[in-house]
Amino acid sequence: MQQTISASQNNTLTLSAAVQVVSAIAIGAALLFAVGFAPMDVAHNAAHDARHAFAFPCH
């Protein structure tokens, strides 16, 4: 069962293991970017000390 998407008999949507794992990686990367690298001033100010402490580039 390596199809990307297959609807099983009881109508629940199932995704292949690989697709789920790749989706999870994308979610993690998006979260890391939002907290650690997002350019908006508000995001930068809120996470400022954390960005410094993880040695992310900051001003």
Binding site: A17, A24, I25, G28, L32, V35
Partner: peptide, 28 residues
């Protein structure tokens, strides 16, 4: 509080990527 929250969010982001890649390793 914001710094702690950001630390936790960054840690969750790292954990998601690490656990996913580990799962991928076990899979492939």
């Amino acid at each position: 509080a914001y710094t702690l929250g950001a630390d936790i969010a960054i840690a969750i982001a790292y954990a998601i990527m690490m656990i996913s890649l580990m799962a991928f390793h076990d899979l492939k």
